[in-house]
């Protein structure tokens, strides 16, 4: 177990360094990267160490570093959000996407891009919350909500918000239309320090809350009555967890758009490696989620002469997993 925990810390750091070396303007060797890092650190301390290639320096600090940081944050956020939602709703096939949070947040973000009444982050969060609330209420209405109804409700709500988004796209001018369309496919290439600044606060806050209460996810995933049975009111902790998960999802969507199914894939990988307990699972989701999205992004940047939108990549990876889970009967349909 110890080497696994060790790997959780080391692997992301290595992948961050490798990702910094890759890019369309050329590959850096690790030793070059360290020289640039050294120069930058020296610069911060007031010493002037001049590098030969100032272009590369700019690309490294203004293009690659913010992109790598943002990608890691978003990957960690989506993976953790997926893991939390799977635990809270006791359902291994839910994720921010299938519960409608992503679509709701994307609509909110697009709306704010079109009519800037409220800040983009806030608008994305609000509509993300609205979407997950409607999903929850629809699936609970009438008879006792089963897991199937929840996924179906999520699909419908997701569809409704996608439809609204289409209306917005129809109404917007070509420039904004292009931005919105790129959004829906995931657009990590627009990463900037500004976006990092916008996303870092809500994502760090949400992750901190979830990490602090992560053990209680085990309790929640046994069911509401089992929580009451040992004297815990599950409602409050459920609310905190779903709220935090929605916040980090919405912030991710606001920063880089929709990255479909990523939040579904990673928790399964974490469980395969570290077992089902959320005590370690949440931390694993941070590490694996961040690293894995960086790896996928590295492929999408370098595989072809042009960039493949990352949302396309994750959808292609997620679909077979979803089908596998359905076939394997890993889903407890009645709980």
């Amino acid at each position: 177990m110890h080497w696994k925990v060790f790997a959780l810390c080391i692997v992301p750091i290595c992948i961050v360094f490798i990702s910094l070396c890759l890019g369309s303007t050329g590959f850096l060797s690790l030793s070059d990267l360290f020289r640039y890092t050294y120069a930058a650190l020296a610069h911060c301390l007031g010493q002037d160490v001049t590098m030969q290639d100032t272009n590369m320096e700019t690309i490294l600090w203004q293009v690659r570093l913010p992109r790598v940081l943002l990608t890691f944050m978003v990957g960690a956020a989506l993976a953790v959000a997926g893991g939390v939602l799977q635990a809270v709703f006791r359902n291994p096939i839910v994720d921010p996407f299938s519960l409608g949070i992503s679509s709701g947040a994307a609509f909110g973000a697009a709306l704010s891009m079109l009519i800037s009444l409220i800040p983009l982050n806030l608008s994305a969060f609000m509509f993300g919350i609205i979407a997950v609330l409607i999903t929850y209420l629809v699936s609970r209405g009438g008879t006792r909500g089963s897991l199937v109804t929840m996924v179906l409700a999520g699909m419908i709500i997701s569809g409704v918000f996608t439809a609204f988004l289409t209306v917005l796209q129809y109404l917007s001018d070509p420039y904004k239309l292009q931005a919105i369309v790129q959004w829906t496919m995931g657009n990590l290439h627009t990463a900037s320090w500004h976006k990092v600044q916008q996303a870092i606060f809500p994502i760090t806050l949400g992750l901190t809350i979830i990490i602090a209460f992560r053990w209680k996810l085990n309790l929640l995933s046994l069911g509401e009555q089992e929580a009451l049975a040992v004297g815990v009111n599950p409602k409050i902790i459920k609310l905190i967890m779903v709220g935090a998960a929605t916040m980090i999802t919405a912030s991710s969507v606001a920063a880089v758009g929709m990255i479909s199914l990523f939040g579904l894939i990673v928790p399964h990988i974490s469980r395969m490696v570290f077992g089902p307990s959320n005590s370690i699972g949440v931390l694993a989701n941070v590490s694996i989620g961040g690293s894995f999205l960086l790896v996928i992004d590295n492929f999408s940047r370098t595989l072809l002469p042009f960039e493949i939108p990352i949302g396309v990549f994750t959808m292609m990876l997620g679909t077979p997993l979803f089908i596998y889970l359905m076939r394997k009967n890993a889903i407890n349909w009645n709980g």
């Binding site: 635990a87 359902n91 040992v230 469980r271 077992g275 407890n332 709980g335």
Partner: peptide, 28 residues
């Protein structure tokens, strides 16, 4: 006052270890 109870039926989705399941009893 602590009131504990046990229901007749229970099923869970995730394969938690026995220890982890019992440990959740200390959640309060």
């Amino acid at each position: 006052l602590r009131i504990g109870f046990m229901n007749q039926f229970h099923q869970t989705t995730f394969p938690f270890s026995v220890f982890d399941v019992v440990l959740t009893g200390r959640a309060s």
